[in-house]
Structure formats: structure tokens, C-alpha cells
Design a binder for these strands. Structure first.
Lengths: 214, 214
DNA sequence: CTAGAAGTATTCCTAATCGAAATACCTGCC
DNA sequence: GGCAGGTATTTCGATTAGGAATACTTCTAG
């Protein structure tokens, strides 16, 4: 029963969840991701943030869109968790607005990282959804989906590996490096899982090429 | 450049993507998931569909909410991919509307499963996001997050294992059984990855209890 | 030298999705 | 007799996704 309300039945009136202005830990996960990006201390524009999240977060947390990053920044500023200023750029390029985390923001994101309940990861595995519908596919098409997924996984693994190597020297990146190592193993596992399923399919419906040796 | 349009610049007028009534393969992924559920041939209500997807899809594809399932069903019916009828229930219980896939729906979902491009899975790994922010946590809290995630993964693995066992006898469930086996391995890997990261953290910041033996 | 591609930077709009709550009726248990 | 819990669906607001528009710059190929 959210909103802490008990007596919402009875009148039929519309009741709004007012989110209790003092209770600020109720931001959506993506806000925390953006604030987390800022918690490393640099002053960044929305565009920078998008690039950072594409590079680092994307291995384990779907990178938010531009529009969302910009609206999160506005929300964070309104909440007092970030401050911004315009900077004029040297030559030509358009002025930009850069954001910096505030002390309140630091305290809030630290509290979130420490205290929030651990919820299950969200996975939307398109390739598996299609394989689940195997009765609609020819074995050859199932293989094709898996081969492509295996290749994608290996590309991701290589990228995580390269990024981990690039990050391991900076002490400030110790924990991001740890998660990059995790990502390296995760994508290695995805690759191997695809290979294992390929073998399972082979067992169910042997490909014309294989197993025909005399 | 979507909508196939080239000359959208120039007027400033608002242009709508009309989605080309004839080109029907442009449904969102969740529509295909629901149609896929129906493609096994049974006549199901929205409520049934929600339960099915909670049981089977959830291992690899985030289960859609009731509201979305019901609106997808309406969309599928309007597109001619599903038909529905009301059934009165024997004793008491409220009437319900059950949906069945049409031949067009079968053809469309088959085409989607066969021809759609293989796109990368979407992962939003909350626990990793928090570990990525390790500079905000005490080692003890990092361990706590990982331990909980490891336990969650093992619970999911056990459920996938149990479901796979229950499904393996029906020939019609051959492919769903294959993806359940995949899920079993996937969650085993998640569990092991959590354990490995726990070990990495141990190496970075030894727990007071451990390594103090003389 | 000039058109266009690509990068920087931000905003707008729409559709997709979530999740809680409202509604409604039944069964079973204490 | 009441209430917890399962079936069944709708409604609403908030969140999230992601393309398109805008605008200005630099680089590059013809």
C-alpha cells in the first residue's frame, strides 16, 4: 500500500501520491545512474554524460537516451543534487551547460548506493525470445540467431577487456575496473551459452553438413 | 531516416510517421512476445497470458504488466492478428474474454521470428550499477549487495531447473525447454560471476574475519 | 571552394512501458 | 461475518525510450 495511505477507498476522489517532498530518496534508477556518473567529481555536460554512459555503463546498464539524460539533469538540479553553469567555448562551438554534483547530491547517491534494496536485474533477451518460439523457425534460422548473438557477445567481451586494460592504472577507477572485469566474464559466458545452445540444437536437429561422415 | 521520408526539412510543419498501414511488421517487441505466447495455439485470457509470461518468459524476457498485456491484445485484435470472444464461466466467476491467434497472426509472428534483425539484449543490472559506484560504499556493503545477488541468481537457477524438468516430456515444449536449459546455465553463471567478484573485492579490501589466521 | 558528412549540444514530441490502484465478484478459512 | 486471496480487467499517472528537429562547426572529397 504505497503513499502510506489507508483510507483511499470510499470517496472515489482522485488521490495523488505527493511523494513527500522531504523524502528525496525516491528517484528512479536512471536518476541515480546519472548522479553516479557525476559522483566521480567532474563537471560534465549532458552530451559528455551520454558519451560516458555509452562507454562505461552500457556493459551492464542500458545507456539512457539524450532526452532522458537532459531531463534527469533538470530534475537533479531542481532537487538540489546538482548545480549547473553555462560555459562559453573558445572557438566557435555553441555554449554549453555543465553540471556538477552538490554535497547533498553526494550524500543522497551515497545513501542510495548503500541502503537501497538489491533488486533483480532487468533482462530483455530478444534472441532468446525468438529461440523460445523455435516451433516457428527452421533449425537453420535458429542457428543464425545464435551465431549472431555469439558474435555480438564476443565483440562486447573484447571491448570490455580493452576498456578494463585502459582503466586499471588509475586508482580512482578501481571499482569501475572491477565491474569491467565482471562484464568481460559476463560476455564470455553469454558467448559460451550461445555455443552450448547451438550444440543442443545440433543434437535435436542435426545440420545437413555434420554427422554425415562414413 | 525512418518514415522513408527524405524531404522533411524545409517547412517546419509537423510530420507524423503514418506507419504505412500495409507494412504491419512494425510492432514493438512486447507485441511479438504476446503474439508468441498465443502462437502455441491455446485460447487465453489476458490474465492467463500474464501468468504464462510470469512463468516462462520471465527467465529471459521481463514480463510485461497486466495493463500492457491487455492493450497489446487490443492492438493485436485490431491488426487482425488475434480474435476474441467472451466466455461465460460455469459457476459464479466473472465472464472473461479469451483470445486466439489468427492465420495472419501466425504468419506475422513467424515472419518476425525468422526475419527480424538480431538485436542486442537489454540489460539493466542494478547491483552492478551500485558496485560500479564502489567509491561510495564500504567493502562490507559491496559484499552484501553481491551476496544477495548471488542468492537471487541461485533461486532463479533452481526455478528454471524445476520448470525445465516439468516441461521436458511434452514434445510441444521442446524449444521452450531448450531456453529453460539456457536460463539454468545463465543463472548459474550469474551466481558464479557474483562469487568471482566477491573474491576480487576480497583481494582489494580483505574482510576483518579472513586472512588473519597465524 | 563548396557541398555534404560527421561531431557537438540540446530540445521536442510521441509511443512504449510500468506499476499501483480501482473495480468486481467468488471461494475458503477462522 | 469478515477478510484474505484468487480471478479478471480497466484506468491513470509517471517513467522510459528514442527518433526528429535545430543549430552551428569542422573536416573532407569532388
Amino acid at each position: 500500500m504505497p503513499c502510506g495511505g489507508k483510507g483511499t477507498t470510499g470517496t472515489g476522489r482522485r488521490l495523488r501520491c505527493v511523494a513527500d517532498e522531504t523524502n528525496t530518496r525516491t528517484l528512479p534508477a536512471t536518476s541515480w545512474a546519472v548522479l553516479g556518473l557525476l559522483s566521480f567529481g567532474e563537471e560534465l555536460s549532458g552530451y559528455d554524460l551520454k558519451k560516458w554512459s555509452d562507454w562505461s555503463l552500457r556493459f551492464f546498464y542500458w545507456s539512457p537516451s539524450f532526452s532522458q539524460i537532459y531531463s534527469e539533469l533538470k530534475r537533479l538540479e531542481k532537487a538540489g543534487y546538482a548545480s549547473s553553469r553555462m560555459v562559453a567555448q573558445d572557438t566557435g562551438t555553441r555554449d554549453k551547460r555543465v553540471y556538477r554534483i552538490t554535497d547533498e547530491g553526494m550524500a543522497a547517491v551515497r545513501e542510495w548506493a548503500r541502503e537501497a534494496p538489491v533488486d533483480p536485474p532487468v533482462l530483455k533477451h530478444g534472441p532468446m525470445l525468438r529461440l523460445w518460439l523455435g516451433h516457428l523457425l527452421e533449425p537453420e534460422q535458429m542457428r543464425e540467431v545464435l551465431v549472431q548473438h555469439r558474435e555480438f557477445s564476443e565483440r562486447m567481451r573484447l571491448r570490455a577487456e580493452a576498456d578494463a586494460e585502459g582503466a586499471q592504472d588509475e586508482a580512482a577507477w578501481a571499482y569501475p575496473t572491477l565491474t569491467l572485469k565482471w562484464a568481460e566474464r559476463y560476455y564470455a559466458s553469454e558467448r559460451d551459452l550461445a555455443a552450448a545452445m547451438l550444440a543442443d540444437i545440433e543434437a535435436l536437429a542435426p545440420a545437413p553438413e555434420s554427422g554425415t561422415r562414413p
